[in-house]
Each structure stands twice: as structure tokens, then as C-alpha cells.
């Protein structure tokens, strides 16, 4: 049976197939889960590609190791993966803070497709500013904002990842966005946003 990232077989069923020795399931899960974990880790680690890859690879390693004990119906594979990646990212952030590393130099690799060089440059500046602003948020607020507004998870899914209630997710997301807006407001002009005349 050929399975790929577009196959309709659920991630949870693929885990069972993987544990039974199905190589196609290994490929399908790799294609589906790895990019999402890598993108999330990259946002959580301020665009540090090398560290994000380490986190994503370690998350997937743990997924493979626990596959034989996977119990369908208890949790979604992506929820589990985001949760593991979150913990790994937090560990690395704490380690960075202890070392006092600066993270803005680790710019994310931006996907192609920007309409022109100027736009691309501006988008790049904005992404760097966003990464830096996200890095200033408390860990939980950053997780909630990234999962909700960048990874596109629903509030109940985020609640499952963060192991908190949906109301707490809503509160964290709202506070996180307010904090982001406050950090980015000082750079509006530099980022190419026109002043719309709102007084603060």
C-alpha cells in the first residue's frame, strides 16, 4: 500500500502501521509531521534554523521510539509532537538565556514567491521584527500566539498541546497579541507601515 502526505489515512492509523513495520507509513508520517514541527520550532527559537532542525529531529526520534506503545484515540500525533517540541524549545531557550545569546542574527530562510525584491526585503525585515518581538514574549504567550496565528491550530487543539483550558488559551493569545503590538509599534515606520493617525 502506497501512502504519502496526501493520503487520507489518519496520522494515528499511520502510527500503528509504522509500528507494524510498514515502510510507507514511515515515509508518510515523516512528510506530514516533520515540516510542521520544524516550522513551529523555528518560530519558537526565533528563526534559528540549526536549532529548529535539532528540535524537530529529536521530536521525530521520540515519536518513532514511542510508536509501538502508541494508543489510538488518546491524543493526536500532531498534538503530541507539538507538545514535545514545545518542551524541547523551552529547554533550549532557557539554555540560550543563560548564555546570553543574541538571536536576531539567526534570520529565518524565507520561502520564495515574494512579488519583487523590495517587497521581499520588506517582508524579510518584518519577519525579523516579528521573530524578535515573539522572542520578547513570555514562553506561554509565545506558544499560544504561534500555534494560533502562525501554525493555524484551533483553540481546543492548542489547549490539548499546552494542557490547559480553552479559556486560558484565549487569554494567553489575547495578551500575547497585545504585547506583540506594543513591541512592534515602536518599529512601525521602519517596517513600512503607514501611520494611520491613531493616537495612543
Amino acid at each position: 500500500m502506497a501512502l504519502d502526505a496526501q493520503d487520507t489515512t489518519s496520522d494515528e492509523a499511520l502510527m500503528v502501521l509504522y509500528a507494524n513495520g510498514d515502510r510507507h507509513a514511515a515515509m508518510a508520517l515523516t512528510q506530514r509531521v516533520t515540516p510542521r514541527v520544524l516550522a513551529y520550532a523555528s518560530r519558537m527559537l526565533s528563526g534559528d534554523r540549526a536549532e529548529a532542525e535539532d528540535v524537530a529531529q529529536e521530536t521525530m526520534l521520540r515519536l518513532w521510539r514511542m510508536a509501538p506503545a502508541w494508543r489510538q484515540g488518546e491524543t493526536k500525533v500532531t498534538t503530541w509532537a507539538y507538545r514535545v517540541a514545545t518542551n524541547l524549545c523551552i529547554d533550549r531557550q532557557r539554555s540560550r538565556r543563560r548564555k546570553g545569546q543574541v538571536t536576531l542574527d539567526d534570520a529565518p530562510d524565507l520561502a520564495d514567491g515574494a512579488p519583487g525584491a523590495d517587497q521581499r526585503l520588506q517582508d524579510g525585515r518584518r519577519m525579523l521584527a516579528l521573530e524578535a518581538a515573539l522572542a520578547e514574549l513570555p514562553d506561554r504567550q509565545r506558544q499560544a500566539v504561534v500555534l494560533r496565528h502562525i501554525e493555524g491550530l484551533s483553540n481546543p487543539e492548542i489547549a490539548a498541546v499546552m494542557e490547559i483550558g480553552v479559556e486560558a488559551v484565549e487569554s494567553l493569545t489575547a495578551r500575547g497579541k497585545r504585547a506583540l503590538a506594543a513591541v512592534l509599534s515602536g518599529q512601525k515606520e521602519a517596517l513600512g507601515y503607514e501611520d494611520e493617525g491613531h493616537a495612543g
Binding site: 516550522a39 520561502a111 519577519m127 497579541k177 512601525k188 507601515y193
Partner: peptide, 21 residues
């Protein structure tokens, strides 16, 4: 003070979502 609007922030986050590494 030039305050970042919700609309601008949402747009920025949407761009980030489309530019996943």
C-alpha cells in the same frame, strides 16, 4: 505614538504563516 493596529498585526502574522521555513 504610532500604534500597531490589530489589522496590521494579523496581516503580519498571516505573512509569517505563509512563509514557514
Amino acid at each position: 505614538m504610532k500604534v500597531m493596529q490589530d489589522k496590521e498585526l494579523d496581516k503580519l502574522l498571516a505573512v509569517a504563516a505563509n512563509q514557514a521555513p
